[in-house]
Amino acid sequence: MTSPLQQKIKITGPSIITANRTWDGAVIYRTGTKSWSDELTDAAIVRTADEARALLSEAVADDLNAIGPYIAPVEVATDGAVKPGNMREHIRLTGTTIALPAQA
């Protein structure tokens, strides 16, 4: 299996590192304080390939707590608000776009 660190890193805008938490699989984001948060607003924003590689390297090293870290795009508004950069990440952050059967 190819490590994400062995892949060429190319980012075109603000990005974050995200993964799933080991014990329950929940979506988590890498913070700037060498930890994980389940809030996107806590995520460290990277803007260059070198910054992304450094943060990803740190995330990959934490194999105990996180599965499959990768770089994901985000949008940062002028007021600093952070939003997912694509539909996949939007769904990971906010949940399914449908009502769950047991809730409907």
């Binding site: 799933n20 699989g25 979506v27 769904i91």
Partner: peptide, 12 residues
């Protein structure tokens, strides 16, 4: 995987 456990977007 041999036990049917995948990791999906939100959870296992």
């Amino acid at each position: 995987l041999q036990n049917g456990v995948y990791l999906q977007l939100h959870a296992y």
